[in-house]
Computed example of a mutant assay.
Amino acid sequence: MTSQEDLAAFIASSFRSVWALEVLCLLRQSPECALSPEELVTAMRASELVVRQSLAELNAAGLILIAEDGFAKYQPATAELDRLVSAAVARYATAPDGVRRIIVKAANSGLTAFADAFRLKRKP
């Protein structure tokens, strides 16, 4: 069983945007099917740039396989990644706001640290 901390760390390190998680969810629905970027754009009503960036990130994370013709399919590199994806998708289905916060916080960690440096501290 995956701990909440492990799951949060996986989500933060694997998805640079909620779009990437949405692409993965769509590909995972039919793991035997490979979809083209154009099919993903249409199915998700997303921009081509968002889909292509998401595919590149998911491929680099070892969560999908992209064929030479550009078609992508869900194929995690290890059983452990498959288990973590299952847990992430389940958590996203039950607590989407929490998952979005994990992704946004990880993507903006440098900006948050910079902003926190200018936060006024109250005297005790």
Rank of each mutant, 00 (worst) to 15 (best):
A34I: 09
V89A: 07
A9V: 13
L111K: 11
A113L: 14
R100A: 12
E39Q: 12
A87H: 00
A9W: 11
V51F: 15
C33A: 06
K121Y: 06
L40W: 07
S30R: 02
E32W: 00
K121D: 10
L65D: 13
A93E: 02
A46C: 07
F15Y: 09
P96H: 03
I102R: 03
R16T: 07
G62C: 01
A90Q: 07
E22M: 14
E39W: 10
A87E: 05
A79N: 14
A90L: 12
D6G: 05
S54D: 02
L111C: 01
A93W: 06
G110H: 14
A95C: 12
K105L: 12
Q75P: 13
A20R: 13
F71W: 05
F10W: 08
L63F: 02
R91T: 06
T42Y: 04
A12E: 08
N108C: 09
R16H: 06
E22Y: 14
M44E: 00
E32A: 06
F15L: 13
R122K: 14
P31T: 00
R45L: 12
P76F: 07
A79H: 08
F15I: 10
A77G: 06
D69S: 00
G110W: 11
P37W: 03
T94Y: 04
R16W: 05
A95Y: 10
A9C: 11
E68N: 07
V51D: 12
S47V: 05
D82I: 04
L58K: 07
A88V: 03
T94M: 05
V41W: 13
P96I: 09
P31M: 00
A106M: 01
R101N: 11
Q4K: 10
V89N: 06
L55T: 10
L81S: 03
V51Q: 15
A60Q: 14
Y92Q: 04
R16I: 06
L58Y: 05
D82T: 14
A93T: 14
Y92K: 06
A87L: 01
L63M: 09
Q53G: 12
Y92G: 00
P37L: 01
G70F: 01
K105E: 08
A46I: 03
A61N: 10
S36W: 00
R122Y: 11
C25W: 11
A34F: 02
G62V: 04
D116A: 08
V18P: 07
A20K: 05
F10K: 02
E5K: 04
C25N: 09
L81C: 02
P31Y: 01
F15E: 11
R52K: 08
P76K: 11
A8C: 08
T42C: 12
L84G: 03
A88H: 07
S14W: 00
D97C: 11
A56N: 12
P31L: 00
A20F: 09
N108W: 00
L84Y: 03
Q75F: 14
A90R: 07
A61P: 11
E80Q: 01
I66R: 03
A34R: 04
L35K: 05
Q29I: 09
E5M: 08
M1L: 04
S30I: 05
E68P: 08
A107P: 14
F114L: 11
R101H: 11
